[in-house]
Design a protein around this nucleic acid. Structure first.
Lengths: 225, 225
DNA sequence: CGAGTAAGTTACCATCGGTAAGTTACCGGC
DNA sequence: GCCGGTAACTTACCGATGGTAACTTACTCG
């Protein structure tokens, strides 16, 4: 148990690494650990040990445990964003844009599986008290905003798209729709974790059918008659 | 500071209460505290002090801090469920059912405001390791399932409804749609917290327009031509 | 009225997030 | 090649807090 075994590296004695490399490695280990065992079941010492360094290094790079989690989320979301953006780029037809985006999204979830489960529900986000802004520490607040930024990124990916295809709708409405889509996708992604038989394409299709045609269409078969 | 001041009660010296009463009181205090200051910013001692008892009582009744949070969530969700269910009961037209449900939902959020913000994202939900089910304690696991039950309750409120109005759709599809709707509503609820100018009715209308008519309708103005 | 039970308390432990101060490897200039 | 500065890294520690064991006190009911 005391055997630390320098984790990732082979057999060489603990080597020093550049900050950038160490950072990536820490994120890899942390993401995996959080995903497998849950956020609060993992201690900073655990992560440090797996990385092959000691705790203060984690704090040097990420400021706090929340900071580390947030950094994981930010990276993961950034990648997700890039994937979906790239997937949608190839389409011209609005429906096709939507379809490709959905498919890319659920395929991404497919790979990152559990990581997504933990990362999706970021804890805290602390709704500060209305009077008096209480900031626990410096770093977390900053990173918390960073994650909020990546979220806005998602909204800003979808909202303008809607505005392009439907210029009639006022801006707030487009934003609301973007939130709706994101929320629905996140939930459906979580749902899929409990239903392994549902493929990514199935999920995308459900989302597509619902969002594109609407409930009216679905209910129509009964009502229209 | 040492003055405990028996919180809720008037001036009488600390009185003993029945378990049921104490439990409710604890939940009231905890819900409020969590909502105002965030989950991990509130200590069990804080809550105990506000209630006018000491920590071990909280543990006697709820087993753990998670257990307490989960109990708050469960109660809150149960009330939400009851409200929406009651609201929908008065309608016959499927569209009206949907509308009333949405409105009741967002009006509930309106009142519980911040409480919802914290309670919506339950932390953990611990994705157990694939091999070997590790249960920390007895109580939390039980309450965790209780919250999962109330979630299913929400799905089970919507899914059969869809199946009633659209018997063509296979059961899994209905369930998927239910998840979509819930996810979208939760997200929209969170979005509203950051946009106070958006009324509950506005939110319900957004959700209605999107879900009922679908994006096809929205895009149609441009594409249909 | 007294005994059992349930509400409640005191005192404590262990873990873990977070930090200060010191140490060692590496790198570039002379 | 040696030297000094910087940046990676460590040891050793603290305080808060989740959680528990053992004990005490009030209420109830036969």
């Amino acid at each position: 148990m005391a055997r630390v075994s320098r984790a990732t590296a082979g057999a060489a004695k603990r080597r020093r690494m550049s900050r950038a490399d160490r950072e990536r490695q820490m994120l890899d280990v942390a993401e995996r650990a959080f995903a497998e065992r849950g956020y609060h079941a993992v201690s900073m010492d655990d992560i440090a040990e797996q990385v092959g360094v000691t705790k203060p290094m984690l704090y040097e790079y990420f400021g706090s445990k929340d900071g580390l989690l947030l950094a994981c989320i930010a990276r993961c979301r950034a990648e997700l964003y890039e994937r979906t953006r790239a997937a949608m780029a190839g389409a011209t037809d609005p429906k096709d844009v939507f379809w490709r985006g959905l498919l890319a999204y659920f395929e991404f979830i497919d790979v990152h599986a559990q990581a997504y489960a933990v990362l999706a529900h970021e804890p805290m986000a602390g709704g500060g008290p209305s009077t008096g802004g209480r900031n626990d520490t410096a770093l977390p607040a900053a990173t918390a905003e960073a994650v909020e930024a990546t979220r806005r990124q998602q909204v800003d990916l979808i909202a303008p798209l809607l505005n392009t295809y439907a210029p009639d709708a006022p801006a707030p409405t487009a934003e609301a729709y973007a939130e709706i889509i994101i929320g629905a996708c996140e939930r459906l992604g979580l749902w899929r974790l409990r239903h392994p038989e549902v493929t990514a394409e199935d999920a995308a299709r459900h989302m597509m059918n619902f969002s594109w045609y609407g409930l009216a269409q679905i209910v129509a078969t009964l009502q229209g008659r």
